[in-house]
Amino acid sequence: MTGIDGCLSEAMAIPGARGVSLVDWTSGLTLGAVGDGPEGGHETSAAEVAELARLAFESGAFTRGTPGAGPVEDLIVTARGSYHLIRFVETAFDSSVFLHLWLDRAEANLAVALFRLKELTARLVLA
């Protein structure tokens, strides 16, 4: 893997992948993207997805019941025609980014995609 671009192209190799982007959820800034965006361009959807990701990450609702177990890791949105996986990237310095993988529901395997995305985001920040 060679940085953000390598990570994005590896994510596109996940079966069923239609598009993937790396987004900063503080503002909805797209740091990199490959493939199609759910609304044409990647930047259009990034702001809305970032807002959802921020609410989930900052809300205590999902983590308050298991204190000390760490923050939210993934969001999974299923729609009739697609899966959207949002994986937060954990870094040893201050950051607020996630990978957003858009999958064709007919071609993708949700469990496989989740596993691969988890492994990819870990490797992105592994020295």
Binding site: G3, F93, A127
Partner: peptide
């Protein structure tokens, strides 16, 4: 000392 990904994320931020 750092992965390429870490450098890019930290520097862009």
């Amino acid at each position: 000392r750092l992965s390429r990904g870490e450098l890019e994320l930290c520097h862009l931020s």
